[in-house]
Design a protein around this nucleic acid. Structure first.
Lengths: 348, 348
DNA sequence: CTGTTAGCGCTTTCAA
DNA sequence: TTGAAAGCGCTAACAG
């Protein structure tokens, strides 16, 4: 017989009493510990009692006693971010595998908010912190974050105090370019993001590497910097397409620019991918999947970064528990692959 | 002088000792309680001690003692959802205003996951639960959710056991149609979502109401049902545009269909908004803002729903605390306005 | 106005 | 194999 609804106040003592054993026994059984054994009989009695009473452990009390909250904190600018979701998803999943719970706090991209978030999270006694940005860049992490193991996601600490997990921009740039080369293109235009940011630097580097490796000398005229918007992509693509010896393929720094490029191509009565092949970057589903033809693009591995970051955080914490914190900053920078998603804007 | 880093083990007793007062005094000062007063002097001494020691309250311990976790749980299919973010954002903000923390768990749109999430959240002793869906519909809420006050967001309980916060679909449909009417259109086509779902039913109803109110008899030929995809919107728009007496405006059930409609319009060498005005629904930024011309659309008030839901949850909890839980299900259905966002696909 | 005193629900060491 | 006991850090009566 199951107990009725409200199991609010059923405590471990209740279970112990009901099963006619000590609280210790209950604790051991529930923790599934093997170091001290309990007879199968009492074990069953206890489990039955748990069920009958509808007992639900009190995580807070457990945390207090065990000095381990089982909580990880994730700070992110959830505000602007269709992206953040995937990081959260990956982190969430990985955390559950470790039976950890993720406390998510929004930094709103404001230093004071981020600081408040860290503070709040620390009050909850999170065992570690994840700090995620919506776009790959250097960030200023609130000082207090140093009090627990912290991993940066899709961003890095300029001072190298924290390990981070970032996308492999260079590899992504290579992959996009190689796909175009494989389709037989040799004059490949590149519409880059605002110069200087890690994504622009890396993708350009990848683009160059791929061309060079293919024995093609990168033509500077085919590289233009834009501003990450559809309009900017439209303009840049227009200029590239109006070149005397125009490219037969366009690698766009992101999907929004690719969206603009589509318009420029269409205006010139050219077809995609027959006349002009296009590859984007970011895999913004809403754009890439719904453009016509659907856009072949390189994906940013947000989910994977979230997963990896939690794994890394777990190791750091474990290392710390064993007293391995030697105080020196762990300047790890884990790089995650950016896979290419085939759709229809490049011919097979 | 600030203490050095690790304030991990600074406890309230430490603060009390340092300030030469009792723990009670510290507790009172930190809780900012007025019922028992503390002399300004001791107050300052305490605050100084807190600062000097780098004391940070232990939320878990506080929860245990006070029997209030200060935690709300939010369950959502974060998986599929560019939308979920906004609900989270609104809820998050509102929760912080009440100094509550949001525990976010993903249901992944699977019943067993949702159940596990509720269970985990209850173990954390959340004071209340929010259950959010990515699209407006009836949902099956895990039974255990009944153990604490629960509010549904963007969905509702078929059995009416839980209060819910949903978008005003009818109002949104009216608003879109009225905008088109205001621009002088009289033959307005409506490309609806899959029939039967609340969004389709409501928006159609709003469309009809607006027309009728304007003295126009809704022409059934101008209403077509699609499937919420760009392709479907493309097809439906094509059929509408090829009608002998074709509409001069299109109200699309969502932005993706509007995206497809754009293509159909373009193919016929018609201009937006000069020849055909278009209004979408959902305000999927990535689509609406980047289409050319940018899409005028009705927004789903996710953020506002999140905020409202948390407010409502707060009241429910407060009511419960005062013993006002009279057991009977509170069949509240709060409806939130869907605002129209002007862009450029309808002439002023 | 301040301090004493019980717990909150659980873990874990140490004896029995 | 099981049980007693001592906290974990904090709140909230209740006395002083």
């Amino acid at each position: 017989m199951r107990a009725s609804g409200k199991s609010r106040n059923v405590t471990m003592s209740d279970v112990a009493r009901h099963a006619r054993v000590s609280r210790t026994a209950v604790s051991f059984v529930l923790a599934g510990r093997s170091d001290t054994s309990v007879s199968p009989q009492t074990r069953d009695r206890i489990l039955d009692a748990v069920r009958d009473l509808g007992y639900r452990p009190n995580a807070g009390a457990r945390a207090l006693a065990a000095q381990r909250s089982g909580l990880f904190g994730l700070i992110t600018e959830i505000v602007t971010a269709p992206f953040a979701v995937d990081v959260i998803k990956g982190a969430q999943e990985r955390a559950w595998e470790d039976r950890k719970f993720l406390l998510i706090a929004s930094s709103e991209d404001r230093a004071d908010m981020a600081e408040a978030a860290v503070e709040k999270l620390l009050e909850q006694r999170v065992e570690g912190l994840l700090y995620a940005a919506t776009w790959h860049r250097a960030v200023q992490v609130p000082k207090a974050a140093g009090e627990v193991p912290t991993v940066l996601v899709n961003c890095f600490d300029a001072e190298g105090r924290f390990p981070s997990v970032v996308p492999d921009e260079i590899g992504g740039g290579r992959r996009a370019t190689e796909r175009l080369l494989a389709a037989g293109h040799e004059r490949i235009g590149f519409i880059n993001l605002d110069p200087g940011i890690p994504a622009a630097v890396g993708r350009l580097e990848g683009y160059r590497q791929a061309l060079t490796d293919a024995g093609i000398h990168p033509d500077p005229d085919l590289v233009i910097s834009g501003h990450a918007t559809a309009d900017s992509g439209y303009d840049a693509a227009g200029r590239l397409l109006d070149l005397p010896d125009r490219p037969t393929a366009l690698f766009c720094g992101n999907d929004r620019m690719a969206m603009g490029a589509y318009d420029a191509v269409r205006e010139r009565a050219l077809r995609i991918p027959e006349d002009i092949a296009i590859v984007g970057f970011d895999n913004q589903e809403l754009i890439a999947a719904y453009l016509r033809p659907a856009l072949t693009t390189v994906a940013l591995p947000f989910e994977e970064m979230g997963r990896t970051a939690v794994s890394l955080l777990g190791s750091l914490i474990a290392a710390g528990d064993q007293g391995k914190t030697d105080g020196q900053p762990i300047d790890t920078k884990v790089t995650i692959d950016c896979p290419l998603l085939e759709r229809s804007s490049v011919r097979p």
